[in-house]
């Protein structure tokens, strides 16, 4: 994480005395106030974002209750019945699949780049992995529905049901459009985020720690597993939560591969829906104001969840990047 950034406030301190005597000019005061005003605009924008979404959700909150809405299953625009339970479950499960698939891969990549690859390959590999984060989500969605979904339908469903059909998670009805497809596409999308942050964290593990383990006769893997990952664990958890936040809020790619079902079943091969996909799918066609408000209510829940998850992740990563725990190199 690039938390460290130059000398904030240094200029202010440096000039504090001089400004008043040498150049306590109106220009300085005005310029400062202008810059401050724009900074306050950002804060106002952030505040109004939260307020506006809450305000838009008020009719729905009044009708169904904030928590009642989250625990009811029914989503029937025609009869004006709205409950978000199934999409909350869909969001959690698809994000969880994504994290489970992405974490080992992302950590493997981070370890490969920081510890294993020949030095001349590190930069290029990191660069190529990072490119994955630059692809717009609509393109992931298109690729997912045109390539991944048919692949799952044609090549994955049958073997999964044959071998794992005894569990409740793999069964029929099985289409290509599914929780699994959403989980896979989300995993691909969050791998570069997790591995990029984990990489920075792992770079900060002191060489002395690794040498200490090597000198005991440890293999390369033992050094990584017993020293590097434990030392970096707080930051890595932060990186994973950051990836989770991204998966929870991701919209287009999920919308295009999850099937947008009006129900939730524990079958990973069945279609489902997430909070974000429901909003994207229905917002244009929402007929009644209650329907729109219910969708905004979903957005409010989504915003609160991702704010909590994001802040938790930032605090974890930030505490590692600046924190006094553990000795630096």
């Amino acid at each position: 994480m690039t938390v460290e950034s130059g000398q904030p406030g240094l200029w202010r301190r440096f000039t504090a005395g001089a400004r008043n005597q040498v150049s306590g000019s109106a220009g300085d005061v005005i310029f400062r106030l202008v810059a401050l005003a724009f900074t306050l605009i950002i804060l106002a924008l952030a505040g109004s974002l939260v307020f506006t979404v809450w305000d838009g959700a008020r009719p729905s909150i009044g009708e169904f209750g904030f928590f009642g809405f989250m625990s009811t299953e029914e989503w029937n625009p025609v009869f004006g019945e709205f409950g978000a339970r199934h999409i909350i479950l869909g969001t959690l499960v698809s994000s969880l699949i994504a994290v489970i698939l992405a974490v080992p891969v992302a950590l493997g990549i981070a370890l490969f780049i920081t510890e294993l690859a020949p030095p001349s390959l590190r930069g290029p590999v990191a660069f190529i992995i990072d490119i994955l984060a630059a692809i717009p989500s609509i393109v992931y969605g298109l690729w997912g529905m045109m390539v991944l979904v048919p692949f799952i339908a044609g090549n994955l469903n049958d073997p999964l049901i044959d071998y794992l059909g005894w569990t409740p998670f793999f069964g029929r009805p099985a289409f290509g459009l599914s929780l699994l497809a959403a989980g896979i596409i989300l995993a691909i999308m969050i791998v570069p985020i997790i591995s990029a942050v984990a990489r920075e964290i792992i770079y900060s593990v002191p060489a002395a720690q690794k040498e200490g383990m090597l000198a005991l006769g440890a293999t390369r893997w033992e050094v990584m597993w017993k020293v590097v990952l434990p030392y970096a664990r707080v930051g890595i958890v932060g990186a994973i939560i950051l990836g989770l936040a991204r998966a929870i809020g991701e919209t287009m790619a999920v919308t295009m591969v999850i099937g947008n079902a009006g129900y939730f079943v524990a079958n990973l091969l069945a279609p489902s829906a997430t909070m974000a996909s429901l909003i994207a799918n229905e917002f244009r066609e929402a007929g009644t104001s209650l329907h729109v408000s219910a969708l905004i209510h979903v957005g409010l829940v989504l915003m609160i969840v991702s704010l909590i998850v994001n802040i938790a992740a930032r605090l974890l990563v930030w505490s590692v990047a600046t924190g006094p725990s553990g000795d630096r190199r």
Binding site: A208, E211, G212, A215, L216, A218, K226, V227, Y231
Partner: peptide, 17 residues
């Protein structure tokens, strides 16, 4: 080799976890 020939470093480096 490193198991048979151990090493102690300049700065103490106990594993903090």
């Amino acid at each position: 080799i490193r198991r048979k020939i151990g090493m102690v470093f300049q700065k103490p480096n106990p594993f903090p976890t």
